[in-house]
Nucleic acid binder design. Structure first.
Length: 231
DNA sequence: GCGACAG
DNA sequence: ATCTTGTCGC
């Protein structure tokens, strides 16, 4: 009898080997520390795919603590790399970097849609981008990639630690950002620690499941997507 | 062998 | 991520 097999073409083992190596190389550059000072500008980063082979990445910059939107930019281009769980960054980072270069207001920290170190090799896209940009970054994901946790309380603000499946090391925090909705997975990326990642996530909540940076980046990605599809 | 698998 | 209608709950 046949056994379960995830949909889509199987990942090329040769490619996976190479990416794993590059990823572990980058991991050695990751640092976790408190933010330099009180951040004034925080960016939100997210990507969408208007077509199967094109990517559109967005950056929004908000003022803290008002959460007022001060800038939004995007980059649209082709994607070559396929999506392979655990190697998302190699598929999205190139275009994300292009989008970042368009910002006129350099943020103090970046909130990325995806995981920071809550990753099999501690190199989620937030950590990956942090190393490439050499900037403070942290990840806010809607789904778990790795680790285990006990369900946090159902009330907004409840938090539970995300632990490494094998070592019990704390790799992130599971946060209930809104009453009775599925929790968020927050983890530091680069030049940022868990305390700062968690504090900023909570400071950016406005009644929605997603914190403003990520929520707005997601929102504008949707708008820009319509634009490029018409053009 | 079995389950899991960000966006 | 993306493709999609109706439907449940506050």
């Amino acid at each position: 009898m046949a056994y379960y097999r995830p949909p889509g073409p199987p990942p090329d083992p040769v490619l996976v080997r190479e990416l794993t190596e590059r990823q572990q190389q980058m991991r050695q550059q990751v640092r976790h520390e408190p933010l330099p000072g009180e951040p004034r500008l925080i960016a939100g980063c997210d990507s969408s795919f208007p077509t199967p082979d094109t990517i559109l990445s967005v950056f929004v910059v908000l003022q803290l603590p008002t959460l007022e939107l001060v800038e939004k930019v995007y980059s649209y281009g082709p994607v070559d790399m396929p999506y392979v769980p655990g190697f998302l960054s190699f598929r999205e980072a190139p275009n994300v970097m292009e989008a970042f270069s368009k910002l006129k207001n350099p943020p103090d920290v970046i909130m990325v849609d995806g995981h920071g170190i809550a990753h099999p090799r501690r190199m989620g896209i937030a950590a990956h981008l942090g190393v490439l940009l050499d900037m403070p970054t942290f990840g806010v994901a809607k789904q778990k990639l790795t680790g285990r946790f006990t369900e946090p309380g159902t009330e907004r603000g409840s938090i539970a630690p995300l632990l490494d499946n094998k070592t019990d090391e704390v790799i992130g925090q599971v946060i209930r950002s809104k009453d009775k909705v599925l929790p968020l997975f927050v983890s530091p990326g680069h030049r940022c620690d868990q305390a700062a990642a968690t504090r900023l996530t909570l400071a950016c909540l406005r009644g929605y499941k997603l914190p403003e940076p990520t929520r707005l980046a997601d929102h504008w990605a949707e708008q820009f997507k319509k634009e490029v599809r018409e053009a």
